[in-house]
Amino acid sequence: RGITCLDHENEKVNMYCVSDDQLICALCKLVGRHRDHQVASLNDR
């Protein structure tokens, strides 16, 4: 089922925000508060 995003409840987390040490979803990176932050794919970890 996967872990859902805290900010976007219908989205699954699939990225890690290095700047905030937090799991995020694609919407967080595209339009959310993490858009200018350094992120890594969970597949890279």
Rank of each mutant, 00 (worst) to 15 (best):
V39M: 07
H37S: 02
D36S: 07
N43K: 15
R33A: 13
G32P: 03
R35E: 14
N43T: 12
N10M: 06
S19M: 09
N10P: 03
D21S: 09
D20P: 01
D20C: 06
N14Y: 07
S19L: 09
N10G: 06
V39C: 11
Y16S: 06
I24S: 06
K12A: 09
D21H: 04
S41A: 09
R33L: 10
I3C: 08
R33I: 08
H34L: 00
A26E: 12
E11V: 02
M15Q: 15
E9H: 09
D36T: 06
C25R: 00
H8R: 01
S41N: 14
D7H: 11
Q38L: 04
H34K: 03
N43Y: 14
K12R: 10
C28E: 00
H34A: 02
H8T: 01
V39I: 07
D36V: 04
R45T: 10
D7W: 04
N14G: 11
S41Q: 13
R33D: 07
K12H: 08
S41H: 07
C25N: 00
K29P: 10
D36W: 04
E9V: 04
N14C: 06
G2M: 09
L42G: 09
I24M: 08
V39L: 09
L42V: 11
A26Y: 09
E9T: 15
E11W: 05
V39P: 05
L42W: 06
Q22E: 08
R33H: 10
D44G: 09
I24V: 13
K29W: 12
N10A: 03
R33S: 08
R1I: 06
S19G: 11
I3T: 13
R45D: 09
K29T: 13
D21N: 12
D36E: 12
R1A: 07
L27K: 15
Q38C: 07
C25G: 00
D21I: 00
L42A: 14
V13E: 05
L42I: 08
Q22M: 13
L6N: 05
G2F: 01
I3A: 07
A26Q: 11
L6H: 13
D20W: 00
V31G: 14
N14W: 02
L23H: 09
R45H: 15
D36N: 02
C5E: 04
Q38Y: 07
K29I: 10
L6W: 05
A40L: 05
Q38S: 03
N14K: 12
D7A: 07
R45Q: 12
N14M: 02
R1K: 05
D21W: 00
